[in-house]
Design a binder for these strands. Structure first.
Length: 945
RNA sequence: GGGCGCUUAGCUCAGUUGGUUUAGAGUGCUUCCUUGACAUGGAAGAGGUCACAGGUUCAAGUCCUGUAGCGCCCACCA
């Protein structure tokens, strides 16, 4: 068979993907004869393009899905995308802007239409890219958070929560993004350190003080309370101040409590109030109170019944309440206010001050705490069961440390602001009756009284109607003057339903729902599910929910993971997944998060084009230690590319040397272990030893370890040793069978990691079945594992390495054959050496391998010690005696030191008494062995003189 | 202000429940090798006080405490 000496992924990957897809290998339906394994994809944004974070995330999921599939599970991976409200709206607005238009020019309906058009055109980009990566999702189940079904789920969830009293509307200070012009949740406004200034501003007192308010006339300090100084980082908000607050215990200001000051520039008279919330230590101990622009001040405002004055437009410009600053942008206004204060001599001082300011997670604009009417979800009742589920271990985090972080967040959870003032998203199922709104207060309507058009609806006393569909008339007053709330829901309000909305919730489709004893999808041997009720087809939900594992990044634990747990428990009465595997963040070499805006991305598609998807997958998984961030550079992908190539060439060697008759598949099923020679037994033993470790690694999400096991075994044991050893006798039947068998099985193990190249090679090998991806995972054959044999072979390898080392030191040419004499102090080793002398000769480049019957140094040799073997290399030209002696002396010293250490330990009573028996025994053996070694080396040294 | 992670070879990083000949890998470096699997390769080699200081233990890279440096997350001190 002719194969190129270099593996070319571009030629094969797309073809195999198409083959798998067309063959329907990704299609999964509930099947009671099989145990389910299910993952729902963290839906990428429709606007998304594949970045390394996705590559890592989806490679891990695909490894799990393919692994479990081969282990006999009904292994389903549900894909989909997220409508990503703000992000998508931004993208479409940008393209509008290029046409010189704004969304307002189009109007809401036209704009939404435009977004859908955009989605149809570009929304599947990321899906195509996931396919390039090799993801074995069931694409026919692809969902989108704005699909009809998922929108239905959103409605259902909203209405249920509303009827339970867990959704409410209210006026609060929320995070407002002046650029996106929408409210944001706390999670969407992460704090960032900002270098700002703390300004100390004088607020003149308006009391009838004997020395009246001639500002600035007096030298400072002569009149203590001519004015009160407040400290602020946002001077522009002073225009909305409605009080100054001090701590009641603060002696400095005691006398001033209840007095008033004149707010500069605005000339509003505001009270000085007392509240323990004020920190005496900070600033001057007096704080300006702006109830409409600061969360703390809001609390004070409520408590002390202050006025709430909003001084800003939603776009961040000052409004008419700001007087002469009306129209200025908030930051420009800050400068202007400061100028004015300076002019009035009311700015006492300013000093640099770094503080944390929330920033919009979409556009990075500094958020403004802003008073507005929004919708919220009451979170504490939802958090309670979610805390319990994790505490009881029903959901497990990997690595476990995220448990604490999750619990800490859950226990301090704040209500969730879910309304967004954008257009793209799920419209709130909230309607207002104009008439009732006006009359307000008195109306109370019970949900049972609603008209047919208002199933599951409620109306509250403010004329608010929550309904699936627009009510024809108000259930309270009968008015038809009804309009829908303009807001849409937070994108995450649909995402948190994802694990069950993708499976058809709240409808279960046409299928009957089978309930009852569903078995846990943990452990590895798939057990057959008992059909619960005869003749009932299980629904997706009853069969696949809860899902098995969620694979995601730490950034969205709060956004998404925590909320899914709450939603699952609330709506499904069950956890959404059993395990949560949190992988690291992909960063560049300087530790910065890879992002397009920073320009430090490595494009996975370029890597795929250059090295292949397999190389990308294998590399990225190899360098991902559990829970650690990964620092990426392009060179790191050489690891996978080289491994791919190695696999390719080793397979090429085997394919070129396979005698078709010898490796008929059935022949390989029945070979007898006893008929195999020692090297074949060794490689099989190693294979199954590695398999055992591999299973353990995969079952505990240690993917890097799994990759490393495969790499080390294949490259450094199978290729470097095994293939080199059998090469001269590659035609012999036992070699044929074993090299074929190990390769074929190894390909299966590697398949979840490198699906394409393994399929390509597997198809070229003699095989049964359509595709490697639906083959079974090899079983561990314990009777094949022989640890003793593995050790013995390893010491033969050590001997060969030692001889090579000696040759190298003597600078012998590779072709130069030499004579080596070996004496083994161990009987089985002697036999082994005799049996495998050709092997040693071959691999160490020997002309003669003499097996000594007594341990005595032959003349004109240099010597070495390998375990229990004395090794002598005949080198008649010139033996540098002095150098030989030095080397042996060094070795003696090293061994003697180790021996002493062992002795010291064995002499310690505590060690003998407390250490376990086997450790003590091992130590004794070790001491004795080292003792023998020292003696042998000393003898060698003597013989040299 | 709290919480978490990291510090091991020149570089990038593994090291699961503490157990020992010689602390591993990839990459880089040095020397040698292109006689048909692979130079994206093979052979040999150099290179480590496991951040520092204490402690627990018969035994510590591994557990505990503290210190330093780096990084991340959370938090309404204006």
């Amino acid at each position: 068979m002719e194969l190129p000496s270099r593996y070319n992924p571009q030629e094969v990957e797309d073809n195999w993907y198409k083959f798998w897809e067309e063959a329907g290998f990704f299609r999964i339906e509930p099947d009671l004869k099989k145990k389910p394994f299910c993952i729902v994809i963290p839906p990428p944004n429709v606007t998304g393009i594949l970045h390394m974070g996705h590559a890592l995330n989806n490679t891990i999921q695909d490894i799990l899905i393919r692994y479990k599939r081969m282990r006999g599970f009904n292994s389903l991976w549900i894909p989909g995308t997220d409508h990503a409200g703000i992000a998508t709206q931004n993208v479409v607005e940008k393209s509008l802007a290029q046409e010189g238009a704004k969304r307002q020019d189009l109007g809401r309906d036209k704009f939404i239409e435009r977004v859908w058009q955009w989605k149809e055109k570009y929304g599947s980009t990321i899906i195509q890219q996931l396919k390039k990566l090799g993801s074995s999702c069931d694409w026919q189940r692809t969902r989108f958070t704005m699909d009809a079904g998922l929108s239905e789920a959103v409605l259902e969830a909203f209405i249920r929560l509303y009827n339970k009293g867990l959704i409410y509307r209210g006026n609060y200070i929320i995070n407002w993004c002046p650029r996106c012009q929408t409210a944001l949740s706390d999670e969407e406004a992460p704090h960032q350190e900002v270098e700002g200034s703390l300004y100390y501003i004088k607020y003149p007192l308006s009391t009838r003080h004997p020395l009246d308010s001639a500002r600035g006339e007096q030298a400072p300090g002569t009149r203590q309370f001519d004015y009160i100084v407040v400290a602020t980082t946002r001077p522009e908000t002073m225009l909305g101040d409605t009080a100054v607050a001090v701590n009641p215990k603060d002696k400095r200001y005691k006398k001033l409590i209840g007095k008033t000051v004149v707010l500069p520039m605005v000339n509003r008279e505001i009270k000085i109030i007392a509240d323990t919330m004020v920190d005496i230590e900070f600033g001057t101990g007096a704080v300006k109170v702006t109830p409409a622009h600061d969360p703390n001040d809001y609390v004070l405002g409520k408590k002390h019944n202050l006025e709430f004055i909003n001084v800003m437009h939603p776009d961040g410009r000052m409004n008419e309440n700001a007087g002469k600053f009306n129209g200025s942008d908030r930051f420009k206004c800050r400068e202007e206010v400061l100028e004015e204060l300076k002019r009035l001599d009311l700015l006492e001082k300013a000093h640099p001050h770094t503080h944390a300011v929330g920033h919009c997670y979409r556009c990075h604009t500094a958020i403004e705490p802003y008073l507005s009417r929004q919708w919220f979800v009451k979170m504490q009742p939802l958090a309670k069961p979610a805390i319990k589920a994790v505490k009881e271990g029903k959901i497990q985090f990997f690595p476990a440390r995220w448990t604490k972080i999750y619990l800490n967040w859950m226990e301090n959870i704040q209500d969730w602001c879910i309304s967004r003032q954008i257009w793209w998203g799920h419209r709130l199922p909230v309607y207002y009756c104009q008439v009732c709104s006006k009359q307000a207060n008195e109306l109370t309507v019970n949900s049972e009284q609603f008209t047919v058009n208002c199933k599951l609806s409620t109306v509250n006393k403010k004329g608010v109607i929550v309904s699936r569909e627009k009510p024809i008339r108000c259930p309270a007053c009968g008015s038809t003057d009804i309009y829908q709330d303009g807001d849409v829901l937070d994108t995450w309000f649909s995402s948190w339903l994802w694990p069950f909305s993708t499976m058809g919730w709240p409808n279960t489709g046409n299928k009957q729902q089978a309930t009852g004893n569903r078995q846990q999808a943990t452990g590895n041997e798939p057990r057959i599910l008992k059909p619960v009720a005869c003749g009932l087809e299980p629904s997706d939900l009853s069969y696949f929910y809860p899902t098995s594992v969620l694979v995601t990044a730490q950034e969205i634990i709060f956004f998404w993971v925590a909320r899914m747990i709450m939603a699952g428990l609330e709506f499904m009465r069950d956890i959404p997944f059993r395990d949560v595997y949190i992988h690291g963040t992909v960063r560049d070499l300087t530790g910065k998060k890879m992002s397009k805006s920073l320009g430090n991305i490595i494009d996975p598609l370029e890597i795929i084009n250059e090295f292949g998807a397999d190389a990308l997958r294998f590399s990225i998984v190899s360098i991902t230690a559990v829970g650690q961030d990964i620092f990426l550079s392009e060179e790191k992908f050489h690891l996978g590319r080289n491994f791919c190539n190695k696999l390719w060439n080793a397979s090429r060697f085997i394919l070129m040397n396979l005698e078709p008759g010898e490796v008929r598949v059935e022949l390989c099923q029945f070979f007898e272990k006893e008929k195999l020679d020692i090297i074949n037994r060794w490689i099989l033993s190693r294979f199954y030893s590695v398999l055992r470790e591999l299973n353990q690694a995969l079952d505990s999400y240690r993917f890097n370890e799994a990759a490393s096991l495969l790499y080390q075994f294949f490259w450094h044991e199978f290729c470097d040793w095994y293939l080199e050893i059998i090469k001269p006798k590659v035609n012999e039947q036992h070699n044929q069978i074993v090299m074929y068998k190990v390769l074929e099985k190894f390909l299966r193990l590697l398949h979840p990691f490198m699906p394409f190249v393994t399929e390509e090679i597997w198809q070229k090998l003699p095989h049964e079945g359509e595709s490697i991806m639906i083959q079974t995972w090899p079983h561990i054959q314990n009777n094949m594992v022989d640890k003793k044999l593995e050790n013995q072979i390893e010491s033969i390898f050590n001997l060969i390495a030692q001889i090579r080392n000696m040759r190298s030191e003597l600078e012998l040419k590779p072709r130069q054959r030499v004579k080596v004499s070996v004496y083994s102090h161990e009987e089985t080793k002697k036999r082994l050496l005799r049996e495998k002398s050709d092997l040693v000769m071959n691999l160490a480049g020997l002309e003669v391998l003499e097996l000594l019957t007594v341990s005595k140094r032959p003349n004109a040799t240099i010597s070495a010690v390998v375990e229990d073997m004395d090794v002598y290399l005949h080198f008649s030209d010139l033996v540098d005696i002095a150098r030989e002696q030095l080397k042996i002396r060094e070795k003696i010293a090293a061994s003697a030191r180790l021996k002493e250490e062992a002795e010291r330990r064995l002499n310690s009573r505590d060690f003998i008494k407390r250490a376990p028996r086997d450790i003590v025994d091992k130590e004794k053996e070790r001491k004795e062995r080292l003792g023998r070694e020292v003696k042998r080396l000393e003898r060698m040294l003597n013989e040299l003189q």
